[in-house]
Write a protein that binds this DNA or RNA. Structure first.
Lengths: 188, 188
DNA sequence: AAGATAAGTGAGCGTCCGCTTATTTATGAA
DNA sequence: TTCATAAATAAGCGGACGCTCACTTATCTT
């Protein structure tokens, strides 16, 4: 039942993993506690399956219209765009994933993720290096410089509390500005 | 009692906010549950105070030997160094802070943090711009490019699961390499 | 229409949790 | 030594929690 999926996300975001309970969820979704156990083995299974579902959508979205054999600048821009789109359009799901990423249950989720994603990303990276569009770097260094700034900007955007005096809003301009800096750093 | 502080961190890292309970903590610390309530108002107060204590140490460490009027490259390198030192020397505390950062209790912690830190960082940023050592940028864009890659590298280092085929270890070399890329991006 | 299966439920079980209370033990000033 | 205060405790209350069970209702097959 899809109601359960959505309510689970909402409640965990709002109240945290502690404070999230089966009885509360059942009441919020308008079903009997017993109904939940038709679809999920137990509380942990419910949380893990929900996390998996959301994460998979996110990964799919971030690869939309992306081809690992694209040129480096074009490919990187596409990925920044896709990620930003998803993050800005699904703030609740993103907050949910982040909460889960730092929970002790995440290990049990991570096993089932990223396999094809990693492959595609590796291929894109290798292609760019071999075409001399990207400085040869340890993959992790490349990744950190190429994507971490984007995630940080999105975090600033999402955050209630501003770091500086006023609330930060992520515009196309700011994104392009940051992307240019990253390209400047990574291009030979 | 300092035993409580440490055990709280250990248990929350290991079992998460759910699964962390007063009775368990008391048993692990070898005291009576009632003793905990001599020092802390309730469960939430215990968690918040513990988080505050750890966070404050982290912020202090990251400003060690740092002067906001330093030259840009020297100052940025010092900050990268301080953060890396702290993160690599206190992996448990870092994991604890990250868990807490994404919990629903973090709002109640954040209020008491960052005030002087933000001021120092702002001063450093303004000085560097006015000396033309740093491209003028929105503060958030600067921050994202300047520090997010470091945090990402540390995350790779800390992570059990490797992104690629083999476990990533953050060396001085990798850090310097990444720092050079960031400087290349940010310098006029 | 009859029977079989799936989907869903309300009530509540046993357990564990946060927290309190009545009491004991350690500390220290006179 | 006396006695007030602080520090710590063991035992356990009330309530919420995860989960189950006996049962009803909806759906499908022939």
């Amino acid at each position: 039942m899809c109601q359960l999926h959505q309510k689970t996300i909402e409640m965990i975001v709002k109240e945290g993993l502690d404070g999230f309970g089966i009885n509360k969820l059942a009441k919020a979704a308008g079903v009997s506690p017993a109904t939940i156990y038709i679809y999920y083995k137990d509380r942990e299974d419910l949380i893990i399956q929900t996390t998996l579902r959301v994460s998979n959508v996110m990964l799919e979205e971030s690869l939309k219209d992306f081809d690992p054999d694209m040129g480096f600048e074009e490919g990187l821009r596409k990925q920044w765009h896709n990620r930003a789109q998803y993050f800005l359009n699904h703030p609740l799901d993103v907050e949910f994933i982040e909460k889960m990423r730092y929970s002790h249950l995440y290990d049990k989720v991570a096993v089932h993720l990223y396999t094809s994603f990693k492959e595609v990303m590796g291929r894109f990276y290798n292609g760019a290096v071999s075409r001399k569009e990207l400085i040869p770097l340890p993959f992790e260094v490349y990744w950190a410089v190429a994507f971490a700034p984007l995630y940080q900007l999105i975090k600033f955007h999402t955050q209630e509390k501003a770091f500086g005096h006023k609330k930060f809003t992520l515009t196309e301009d700011f994104m392009e500005q940051a992307l240019q800096l990253v390209l400047k750093a990574l291009k030979p």
